[in-house]
Design a protein around this nucleic acid. Structure first.
Lengths: 213, 213
DNA sequence: TCTGGGTTTGACCAACTGGTCAAAACAACG
DNA sequence: CGTTGTTTTGACCAGTTGGTCAAACCCAGA
């Protein structure tokens, strides 16, 4: 009777601490997967591409993750964990204008510092969000509705201009995504200038509107 | 000696008017290609998908276009022809605020009316714009630089607030793309409300900033 | 009705795809 | 050192992919 062969994922259920090699390789695969998935989307990405980028052979890659889908899912889960943090920390008890501006800045920083994650998300949405639509309709909607309600009370109390809160949030998303997702276009048009200097234009617009009677 | 067999593309060089069937099928293929490419990107799209969506067999599809690449290229060319029109018609001799607002509205209308084109463009950019980077660096950059110069003179003359013109344009792009490209997310969050009502939030922000001293 | 080109298709192909497997190589620990 | 479990790999597979081709089909005009 041959010894039971287990791959990494199967072993995960058992409470064994991951070895040094496991940590290194899983991290390499996720990073490589992020590179490739964020550029080509799920269907446009091949395991060979990921394996190459990670410096592993394809069978070796499949030793750490049972399938292409599993890598993609792991990435999306990791992304969603942190992606909504900036909005979560919008504080109903803080100063309205400051809170909204700070949120916009946090979101902007996130897109600047994690452009691959931004593109992974963009790709998923562009493809109709087949793997995260449920989350959008539940977790995300709940969070946004909650924060929108806060902003609405601010507007009704006259502390900020009267703005549809949902679309205010969308406008922040739109802007922050753009500099990450359309990076190539921004750079092509700007030539050599630093792309992120322009963020202030949006922040200015936002600020101007918030203060408007 | 057998009669020379020619497919559609080869025949194009010869000045023959396309038949009714040719017009119909080419249009069907382009529309189907737009559907699929705009969702899955170039690599994520298969000829079978396009053929299915167009109601043709795969070999028949390849009778009208010599390759997958050719369909994609045709779509991108058709897109670029019209995509920059709104900016082109920004008039240096018009009223500054009105011109900029009208441009934003034209662009917004375009994204609303041609969401598939918007997504096709987004997909291409996300993938690093391999097929249109040249155009971005030349035609697009030239156009944007030219219009940015116009806006700059307006700002210097004190007719609008002092804003970096390039990033002003980017902010318009960001916003208009968002409602088309992230449609799924917008709808998921809004539930049943009409997504495009929110465009006015951005127009308000833009307006508020333009008038700011 | 016949004929010539335009159109469509089934059968096919080589390359690539996600994924499997057994065996080999390696690392760790006594 | 040997043993045991972990990691890596080459060979392989079935299904899919972009694309070809000759033959069949259609359809207008003479």
């Amino acid at each position: 009777m041959p010894a039971l062969r287990l791959n990494f994922e199967q072993r995960i259920g058992m409470t064994k601490a991951p070895t040094r090699i496991q940590k290194r390789n899983r991290a390499a695969i996720l990073s490589a997967g992020l590179d490739v998935f964020s550029q080509f989307g799920f269907r446009g990405t091949t395991l060979d591409q990921i394996a190459d980028a990670a410096g592993l052979s394809k069978p070796n890659l499949l030793y750490y993750f049972p399938s292409k889908e599993a890598i993609h899912t792991a990435l999306l889960e990791r992304l969603l964990e942190t992606w909504l943090d900036p909005l979560k920390s919008l504080d109903a008890d803080g100063d309205p204008v400051k809170e909204i501006m700070a949120y916009a800045q946090r979101k902007l920083a996130m897109s600047r510092d994690y452009p691959r994650e931004s593109r992974l998300f963009a790709n998923e949405i562009l493809q109709g969000a087949p793997r995260i639509e449920e989350i959008l309709r539940t977790d995300l909607k709940t969070l946004v509705d909650e924060k929108a309600a806060v902003i609405k009370t601010w507007a009704e109390a006259g502390k900020i201009a009267d703005i549809d809160p949902h679309h205010l949030i969308f406008s922040i998303w739109a802007f922050t995504q753009h500099y990450a997702d359309f990076d190539v276009q921004v750079r092509a048009v700007l030539g050599d200038k630093a792309p992120y200097d322009g963020a202030s234009v949006f922040l200015d617009m936002l600020y101007a509107k918030l203060l408007r009677p």
